[in-house]
């Protein structure tokens, strides 16, 4: 599944199968992500999107198939630190470290894992936090921040490790609607900057705007994949994708109710 130049994709998933007990969650799934590409993964709740990202991140083992990073097989949960640092992940529930300030959340891993100089790590954290508009919150504790602010800090925390690929799992699903934008704007900016990302989201307009490619999962498989997100959202080819996308639309059959016409 290498691309035309013969170069291995940044991230590749081949025949990935994952079971929980008897339940086959991922069933021989294939996916390739080129360097700098933004792939959006869609699909109904429970179809295995999080499981896919967790298998890629090494948080779950795989039952068959493999995950490759720049051609190198990396399946499984026993990865060395250097490898784990190459894949950044942001979770739906932010999961900041509650006993540390915003600044310390961002600098902890660069200092203790990458042994970078504290001042240098703080300077970089400053740049990241300024970029997401949270530098003035550097000394606050996560519990005092809004969900949107926490999620922006979580993104900075992952970016501070300079990952090759970012995995974002429904990063706005726990947010109040007015905070969704501030987080997704940050993600859009990362895409502009050329960061390779795999994004799971239910924000369809965001997905259409950011995706280089859309992949729809259902029943543990890719049911539709498109390099043309606009076309995918306008005219999905498969019935299952049409059905899925129709869940995000609302139509009122006007004229049926007689009393409450506009």
């Amino acid at each position: 599944m290498s691309d035309a130049t013969g170069e291995a994709p940044m991230l590749e998933v081949r025949g990935l199968t994952k079971r929980f007990g008897d339940e086959v969650v991922l069933d021989g799934l294939d996916l390739a992500v080129r360097k700098g590409e933004v792939v959006v993964v869609l699909g109904p709740s429970g179809c295995g999107k999080s499981t896919l990202l967790r298998c890629i991140a090494g948080l779950e083992g795989v039952d068959a198939g493999e995950v490759r990073l720049e051609g190198e097989p990396i399946s499984g949960t026993r990865r060395d630190s250097a490898l784990r640092q190459r894949l950044g992940m942001v979770f739906q529930s932010y999961d900041l470290f509650p006993t540390r300030t915003v600044l310390a959340n961002v600098t902890l891993a660069p200092v203790v894992v990458q042994h970078r100089d504290r001042l240098e790590a703080e300077r970089e954290a400053e740049a990241l936090l300024r970029r997401v508009g949270l530098w003035d919150k550097r000394d606050s504790y996560p519990s005092t921040l809004s969900g949107g602010q926490r999620q922006r800090v979580a993104i900075c925390r992952a970016l501070a490790m300079h990952p090759d690929v970012m995995l974002l799992d429904e990063v706005t699903a726990a947010l109040d609607p007015e905070m969704v934008h501030e987080v997704l704007d940050v993600v859009l900016e990362l895409a502009e900057g050329g960061l390779t990302m795999v994004i799971v989201t239910h924000e369809m307009r965001f997905a259409a705007a950011i995706a280089d490619r859309v992949v729809m999962l259902d029943g543990g498989e890719v049911v539709e994949e498109s390099d043309d997100p606009a076309a995918f959202f306008e005219r999905p080819e498969t019935g299952r994708a049409r059905e899925f996308l129709s869940m995000f639309e609302y139509k009122r059959e006007k004229g049926k109710g007689t009393d409450h016409e506009d």
Partner: peptide, 18 residues
Amino acid sequence: IPRTQYDSAYVLGMGRRQ
């Protein structure tokens, strides 16, 4: 301590002791 805290530490490259 929620499991997600261990997950966060793992993806940031921290070892078990760290």
